[in-house]
Structure formats: structure tokens, C-alpha cells
Write a protein that binds this DNA or RNA. Structure first.
Lengths: 119, 119
DNA sequence: TAATCGTATCAGTGATTATTTATATGCTAA
DNA sequence: TTAGCATATAAATAATCACTGATACGATTA
């Protein structure tokens, strides 16, 4: 059961210099989670601390079903975790290094746009 | 063959700690380019050096129109540049730091899968 | 119990996209 | 000019996805 993703044994050192096999799939899956502007806003929003859905809705001025939809997607990619407290459901980042990855993308993006010759 | 890597001294102070405004859009756009398994394979493929379309087709065993389609998408996101030499069109990475971003995503993805509580 | 608040889910729609097959375009040599 | 190779593009399909509006679910309180 649970054949979505595979587990790794972390006994030996992993090769971080290149991707192989199913890693292309997992990286693509993770990148897809970051490929939506609203999801990025949500991630940055809850990076300040765990927040309930209503707070995110209010802060980002998005509809509640839309925020719930994106949070579900972020949870599916394991980027966020939830904790219930009464009627509130708090969402928080599961790994803050995703912020470093986002910043790396931002740096590259800014440079690509800056050094662009045409336009 | 010269690698045109650049030094990055900030001429204007850039805020790398957070995203604001249009940066969400550009990061999402860049992430979308990385959100496809075949495009990641293509990027890693040409990271070994500039390659013609036929070489990529052969190496990745994808159809030629599919490779051309993805290369067009990668060019649209400024991740690759082209050089024509006779009938051949060579594609190469425009910024090798995208590999670092991909590796960062891979590390996070591997950790998310590893530390996941399997119910 | 009922009522209310917070959140999730359902159904539908329009837009985007990955892929295939077929065709067109561009370059070079004979 | 022709033929032939390398690459791009067009057309069609199927799948995915972001978003909206409506509704359902769950927890708390009266």
C-alpha cells in the first residue's frame, strides 16, 4: 500500500551531484508544487509561523476554497503539515530548506531576466 | 570553449531573504519549467555540454517533436540558449546555477520522503 | 437539540499542457 | 535545380489544473 512515493535507506552517502531514476520524478513533482504563484505566497505566508486557514485567506485575500485547495496540494507534496486545535487547522512548513530552494530559483530567475539580450 | 560564468556582485542592493510582488510570478514560471520529468532530463543532459537536438533525442529516447517542444519551453523560460551550426542547432544551459537549485529541490524531496511518518 | 463558525469537498468551467502523428521549414551537397 | 538530413511547427487528443460557487462536514457553544 501507499505506492505514491518510495522510501530511502539513508545508511550510505547519497549522490547529490546528479539525479538518477525516480529522482527526476520526485523533483518534478516538488517543482510542480512551486509552480503556482498562490502556492508560493501561501508557503511564504506560513513560513512566519503556523497559521490557520482563515488567517491565510485574510492575509492573501484569496477565496477560502482556493486556499484549501492549494493547501491540500502542498500537503500532498509533503511541504506542509497540519495540526488541529479545536475548529482551527494550523498549517506549517515541514522543511524550511524549501525556502532556500525558492530563493535559489529567485536568484537564477532574476539573473536570467537581467542578462537577457532582447526585449 | 569558454564557460561564461559570471561573478555576481550586486550593483543594487537586492533583497534575497524574501519574495515580493512580481517575483512570485517569475519564480512560479521558472518552477513550472522544472516541473516536467522530461525537461529535467533534458537539462541534465545538456549540462554536460552543448548538444544538438538529435543527440538529445537519441540519448533520452524521446520523440524528436517532443524534445523540440520541451526545448522551446526551456528557451521560453530562458534556461537554455541556442547556437546554429549548419543544419544543427545546439542547445546549452544559460545558467549552471539552475543545477544547484535542482539539487536543492532533490535534497528537500529526499528528506521529505525519508522523514515522512508512514502512518 | 439548534445555531454558528472554520474548513473541506463537490461540481462545473475554462485554460493550459504533454504527447503523438503528420507536415513544413531550413541547411547542405550533388 | 534536386535530394536528403536536421529541426520546427501544426493539428488533434487526452489529461491536468486553477478557480468559482455551492454545499457538506466537523467542532464549539447556547
Amino acid at each position: 500500500m501507499d505506492e505514491d512515493m518510495k522510501d530511502y535507506t539513508s545508511e550510505t552517502d547519497q549522490d547529490t551531484s546528479t539525479l538518477h531514476g525516480e529522482e527526476f520524478q520526485t523533483v518534478a513533482f516538488l517543482a510542480k508544487s512551486l509552480s503556482d504563484e498562490n502556492r508560493l505566497r501561501i508557503l511564504l505566508c506560513i513560513s512566519q509561523g503556523k497559521k490557520a486557514v482563515g488567517s491565510i485567506v485574510e492575509e492573501l485575500r484569496l477565496s477560502q476554497p482556493l486556499v484549501s485547495h492549494h493547501l491540500k496540494e502542498l500537503k500532498r507534496s509533503l511541504l506542509v503539515t497540519t495540526t488541529r486545535s479545536g475548529p482551527f487547522i494550523y498549517y506549517e512548513l515541514s522543511d524550511f530548506r524549501i525556502l532556500e530552494a525558492i530563493k535559489a530559483l529567485n536568484t537564477v530567475a532574476r539573473d536570467l531576466l537581467a542578462t537577457r539580450t532582447t526585449f
